[in-house]
Each structure stands twice: as structure tokens, then as C-alpha cells.
Design a protein around this nucleic acid. Sequence first.
DNA 1: ATATGTGCAAACTGTTTGCAGCCGC
DNA 2: GCGGCTGCAAACAGTTTGCACATAT
Lengths: 136, 136
Amino acid sequence: MEEYVKILKENNLKVTPQRLIVLKYLGEHHTHPTTDIIYRDLKTNNPSLSKTTVYNTLEALKEHGIIQSITISGSELRYDFKQGMHHHFLCKKCGRITDIDIECPNLGKMLECGHNVEEVHGYFKGICKNCLKKEA
Amino acid sequence: MEEYVKILKENNLKVTPQRLIVLKYLGEHHTHPTTDIIYRDLKTNNPSLSKTTVYNTLEALKEHGIIQSITISGSELRYDFKQGMHHHFLCKKCGRITDIDIECPNLGKMLECGHNVEEVHGYFKGICKNCLKKEA
DNA sequence: ATATGTGCAAACTGTTTGCAGCCGC
DNA sequence: GCGGCTGCAAACAGTTTGCACATAT
């Protein structure tokens, strides 16, 4: 828990119970949850929590580069505790999103083309290993 | 125009005026438009056109692999006339999305990991060349 | 006392659904 | 006349906004 307090302080974000539990949730669940999932899971033990606060908190964490949002599923934002560059794989069958730990070898080429690249997102979609196994 | 009729026929899609103008629009505008942009632009010369039909048509074209949807901007789907693998760059300033013609060297590595990869999306975000120039 | 965070409700946006009417083979 | 396409309106989901209250320096 202390580590999350530290992260907030280092980023000049006021430490509130709400921010702490949201950040802790993301630190412990690498499932790329939506705002609603985070809200529903936390609501149980924190009945007074509001969804607006979850939105606000995620926005603040994102602005400070502590987390990042991914748009792989299209209809909603999902959040990811940031830890080095990696890509994502979305299984169209079970809906699970898994981390893919590969670098982006295109970045060098991107820099050549003159744009100032701040974010790199690699999204792969298909059927995951597990679902393939079940089908067989 | 005849080329778009041909595409629809080849994919066993009934040729209707609505489908033709939507497909033609995407063939001629490589701007990665949203459903709403397509609708508004076409509505002028086709007042009876309904947005539902635009949604339906885009869905049909996508299912047949004629176009693809990209989720780079998060809040809405954007459409792209499909033509070989390429990536996308979104300028956070002017909002423009540009095609990046590079291959994805990660695909090989992805196949190794056992998932069945059907789609590859590479999204880069930052400030584009043009906007950088204006700033300077 | 002031600035910031929280939480409710209402608004807004993009998308989907239900259904009636239409068109073409 | 049947199946698929169109278009309207209503429903829906995710997100944002306005505002009053709470909290902490």
C-alpha cells in the first residue's frame, strides 16, 4: 500500500482513499479493466465510491503517465498500469486481453518520418491459445 | 464507379445505391472518417440517406473484409478502405490520421506465441510534422 | 478561507435495436 | 410473395458536465 502512496506523492497528486484504491486495483489486476469494472469491483467494499470519481482518478493518473489507456476493444477505454513498452492481444472469443512483451521495431522508422511520436500502441486480435485448445 | 459495383458483386453483396456511395466515398477519401462524417458528407447529395443504413453498410463491408475499422481515437470507430497492411498515426493537435506504410515485423513473433492472429493494428500518437512546423 | 476532491444527476455522443415499409428477383 | 435493404424512432452504453457538499491545508 505504501508504494501506491509514494507514487501519488511523487506525482504531486493529493493522496485520497479513492485514488489509492483505484491505483492499488490497477497495480494488482493486470486485466485491462474498463472504468465500470473497476467501479463495480471497488464499490463492494467502498459503497460511497462514485463512478465520477473513478473517471476523475483514472484521468488524473493517466495525465501523470502513471497508467495508460488502451482502445483495443473500440467501445470503451481500458486501463493498464504502465510498465515499459508492450503490446496487447485481444481474443475475439473470450474477450481476454493479454500483454505481449515485444518491443516495437517500427519506432525508429517512425521517427524518421518527421512526426513527434509520443505513444505507441500495438493491438493484435484473433483467437487466443486457450480458446483454440478448447475448440480442438 | 464500375469498380465499386464489381467489389460488391465479388463479395455477394447486393448492389444498392446506398452501398455504392458509401463504398465510393471510402475509396476516394482516405481520411479515416467516422460514420457520422460519411453520413453528413453524403447526406447533401442524398437527402433520403439514413444513418442506420450507413452503419449497416459499413458493418457489411467490414464483415466481407472490404474495409476495416480502426479504434485509434477511442471514442468512435473510423473506417479505412483496406489495402495491404499499414499502420496509423494520430496527431493530437490537428486530429488528422495518416497512413504509415510499414510492415509489422512483430507478426512472426506473435505467431510463435500460439495465438491465432487475425488482425494487426499499429497506432502511433503524437504531433505531426505539419503541426510541428507551425509551432516553430 | 481557499483550493481541491467527491458524488449525484443530468446531458451528451456514438452505436444498436425494433419495427414498418419498400424494392427486386 | 419472400428475403433482404432502408430508414425512422427509441433504447442503450460509455463518458462528460454542472453543481453542491465535503475535506484538508
